[in-house]
Amino acid sequence: MPLNYTKKTLNHFLKPRNIGEIKNADAYAEIGNMVCGDQLNFSLKVEKGVIKDIKFMSFGCASNIATASIMTEKVKGMTLEEARNFDFNTITSELGGLPQQKIHCSVMAVQGLKKVIDNYEKKGEKVTNKKKVNRK
């Protein structure tokens, strides 16, 4: 059974957007999938609660790369709140469909996005906590 990736998926695989790592990023996250062994690393830059920049590195199959690519394209400019609610089904529909056995790639990309936002917010908390401590 061939995978029959859509043209758009292949395009994002062959020319992935937002590839690499942001220097001095506000947060980083690594996410792996034990089932297929794929890995995604995200780096995030936030300005006034809005995603200013997001980049990714991938050790993964074509759909792993393509799903992360299109997701980063979509969430750039979103508020953290909007990005946190980003639905993995959006990736599939944006790509014009994914083979059934590759749906988990889009799930993993979204998990990675949530993780990097979590890491950003945790860091923020720590900073505010420290400030509170300092004030005392």
Partner: peptide, 29 residues
């Protein structure tokens, strides 16, 4: 990742496989 290399080659008309043809469909290593 093997499948990514395979797809790159495939886009150029070069046919190879990751593992066996059967296991290429399921995601288990």
């Amino acid at each position: 990742e093997g499948e990514a290399v395979l797809m790159d080659l495939s886009q150029q008309g070069i046919c190879v496989s990751t593992g066996s043809a059967c296991s290429a469909q399921n995601l288990k290593t």
